[in-house]
């Protein structure tokens, strides 16, 4: 009875002279080895040579600023709720008069912490954020740590640096009226 269509009948026929010599088989095998010398090398010399990353890769987090450099985060806590690993925690604070150039809304995150070892880089915080404040960068990998003391990232390491903000002038057409007002107030220095 045939149990499978892939079974092979074993033959007991005597080996021919060529097969008994084994030389053709050895030469054939060596040929495969030698062929690999001339093939493109598969290895990426990692620290020196970086592999291009996908544009949708979810790497290290960043807390974005808006076009004029104000923090977008309003500490609503939706990211912390969405986080399956419960890696995000924050403390909200009220914006004081005179801080309009620092924070976009009336409320901001005084403390914003992500535990990098808990985080699973799923991007649900990015999806949950109504203010487009948190993003997972596609070009930055989370570093490894020597100690548990370094793994909680606060605002000092999460907030986007001011240097990376595109100049307000080029983006002016895209700004809303209130944005323009704050922009003007900030530039005039009268707040």
């Amino acid at each position: 009875m045939q149990l499978t269509s892939r079974s092979k009948r074993v033959s007991n026929k005597k080996l021919s002279l060529g097969e008994r010599l084994y030389l053709p088989a050895i030469v054939g095998g060596l040929g495969i080895t030698i062929k690999h010398f001339f093939k493109k090398k598969a290895t990426i010399q990692y620290p020196e040579e970086q592999r291009p990353m996908s544009s949708v890769y979810r790497g290290l987090h960043v807390l974005k600023r808006d076009e004029v450099g104000r923090e977008r985060c309003t500490a609503c806590g939706l990211c912390a709720v969405a986080c399956p690993a419960e890696a995000i925690s924050m403390i909200a604070a009220e914006r004081q008069p005179g801080e309009e150039h620092l924070y976009r809304e009336e409320k901001y995150a005084a403390v914003y912490e992500i535990n990098m070892l808990r985080c699973i880089f799923c991007g649900l915080c990015e999806e949950a954020c109504p203010k487009s404040a948190i993003y997972l960068q596609s070009d930055k990998l989370a570093p490894s740590f020597f100690s548990r003391a370094d793994v909680i990232y606060g605002k000092d390491r999460l907030v986007q640096s001011m240097e990376t903000i595109t100049s307000a002038k080029s983006l002016k057409s895209g700004l809303t009226t209130s944005d323009r007002y704050v922009d003007k107030v900030w530039k005039d220095g009268k707040y």
Partner: peptide, 21 residues
């Protein structure tokens, strides 16, 4: 533990970085 590598899972680059540490 000497070195922690974050990620879920980490990319091979990150594992290599951990080994370098």
């Amino acid at each position: 533990v000497d070195v922690y590598v974050p990620g879920c899972p980490p990319r091979p680059e990150q594992i290599i970085e951990g080994l370098l540490k």
